[in-house]
Write a protein that binds this DNA or RNA. Structure first.
Lengths: 330, 330
DNA sequence: AATTAGTTAGTAACCGTTTTCATAACGTGG
DNA sequence: CCACGTTATGAAAACGGTTACTAACTAATT
């Protein structure tokens, strides 16, 4: 059942049927009704791919995530999806599992016009490649970004949040503060490390390289790195950890070492995933407005797709230090 | 840059370029090389939508999830995505957020031929609708299913797993065992409830309606339902909870009520999400082979799409009771 | 009444591939 | 050397919508 069939049944041309569906106001009420009756009677559904082909837009966007099983990214994704759906867009999911090659391969969907735009929740490709891509296609970065890249980006200020987190520990009286970073290849890891260092230095505390451990993005990795830190001759009394899941690994390691959190070891995480308020002790953490980041990113992408001008390219969302049990002694 | 442009540059027809790309063996090595050289030189990428239109297949499948932020479903999704990608399919994500209307609306993607097939991780639509859909389009159910519906399905045996979970508590000496169900409209809730009842009855234990509380799929809901159970005149000494996240809510409620888990209250969850081995106390739970379920579901969908016959329609995957701290006293 | 503007609907071109069919070139065996 | 099968390529017709253009008609203005 195609449009021309419907047209015949309604005694109109295919053009009119098309207009009834896409620009109803251009068709007289009477004809519109007649066409709609036929459409309903035969349960006609337009062939979307044919439409995509003719209009040269797919109404599909691609979201590339570094890890779909992460409680953080799935919330951002939800923000994106809501706005996408509201505006008639479907979402293709690209999970890279932190593999840069897979990130690269998803770009083909854009090059081959299979999607109208792309939001990258991970940005590990090289700058010039992204630059070129963004000059030709609607592209926005969220969460991660690339330094000096003039592409619409929405994120929080990771440096200042990390500084805030570290300063919270300093204010609690800690001076032996360690930091477990994420993979240092990821810019967020470098940013949070920078914030940590800034806080230490501006409070006249020594930045001890032994107190800085690079971890991977997992509970287990942070667990192991924490054991390392705790076995130092002067172990830290507080640890700022790259994210919440890793912070839980840190706490587990502390517990397994017979330490009490927070009295023997204070821990601060990052992201404020749901579990961080459920875990015991509850995590002190930096709340990222996950849903809002996704929402904003998608709104920007829509503007890009519609050719609207962007007043601003960089959007820094507001984060918040949330103090809970893992750092604070009542 | 379209195929005919490439053709001109290579002094061949568009048909030949198409063949070089899709059936290289049908083109002489010499011509093939000449065409490939041009393709590489001008960095030509075929217009996928045009191809989709012509071949009437999109190489996209749709996965409808009840909740993308769930640790359980994102693992299943990953299994699906791996197999999809391996076979050249992209995945459109449909998150219903447990809303049946949104579930219904995603069906349009199938009706409008925007996707080649669909795997439903939630099946709350009525049977006849799904039946009709499945007769016309490649469709497979995973995790959830519909009773008596002859559509390819992969899941575990929820009744027997729930029985196993409950019997574990009985074997530990409990007789006052409560059950917090999921929304009873979801078949999995009814199945697990059934398994719970079976275990109680076959062990000559009374099924006390007051011990059965319907919860929602959240930490908070289970927290509240647990407080209710604990305030009974004879509170249960063990609770089997619909899933792990809810079980954590139950444990939190127990702790907040001054009870020790497992000595005052034993708790068993379901799903074996990652957090259940991290949470304290670690959760006793039923492990579902999440990745394998997704993998199998996608494999079935591929067969359906390719018109291969299915020997079997119902696939019951193996689950496993994992005994951890929340039920077991060392 | 003639001109103009506005509304409505039809005609036909077009979007970029794939594939059928026809044809040409090329051995190969009789 | 001819008939034939085989292989390589091209021409052209789809696939199912959308939209620019045009025409017919109506209504309003002069």
């Amino acid at each position: 059942m195609k449009m021309s069939d419907v047209a015949k049944l309604a005694n109109v041309s295919a053009a009119t049927v098309s207009r009834v569906l896409s620009h109803p106001e251009k068709v007289s009420a009477e004809t519109r009704q007649r066409v709609m009756d036929v459409i309903n009677k035969v349960n006609y559904k337009p062939h979307i791919v044919a439409r995509q082909f003719r209009t040269q837009e797919t109404k599909i966007i691609l979201v590339v995530v570094p890890d779909i099983t992460s409680a953080f990214f799935s919330k951002v994704l939800r923000g994106i999806e809501h706005i996408a759906l509201e505006n008639g867009y479907q979402v293709i999911l690209g999970d890279t599992e932190n593999d840069i090659e897979r990130e690269d391969s998803y770009i083909n969907l854009l090059l081959q016009k299979q999607v109208d735009g792309m939001v990258l929740l991970t940005a590990r490709l090289n700058k010039s490649k992204l630059e070129e891509l963004a000059s030709e296609f609607p592209l926005v970065l969220a969460c991660e970004y690339v330094d000096g890249l003039n592409v619409p980006t929405v994120s929080i200020d990771n440096v200042s949040s990390a500084r805030k987190a570290t300063e919270h520990l300093i204010q609690l009286g800690h001076s032996k503060i360690a930091h477990i970073t994420g993979p240092i290849s990821v810019i967020l890891s470098r940013d949070r490390l920078k914030g940590y260092k800034q806080a230490m230095i501006s409070n006249d505390l020594e930045v001890d390289p032994a107190y800085i451990q690079e971890g991977e993005l997992s509970f287990e990795s942070s667990y192991n790195q924490t054991l390392k830190l705790l076995s130092l001759s002067t172990p830290p009394t507080a640890i700022f950890v790259f994210n919440d899941e890793m912070a839980m690994g840190t706490i587990k390691a502390a517990k397994d070492s017979g330490l009490n959190v927070p009295s023997d070891l204070a821990v601060v995480g990052f992201d404020n995933i749901k579990m961080s308020s459920v875990f015991e002790p509850n995590l002190t953490t930096i709340d990222q407005p996950k849903y809002a980041i996704g929402k904003k990113a998608m709104e920007l992408l829509l503007k890009l797709i519609n050719g609207e001008p962007l007043k601003k390219k960089k959007f820094v969302m507001k984060d918040e230090l949330i103090i809970r049990e893992s750092s604070h002694i009542e």
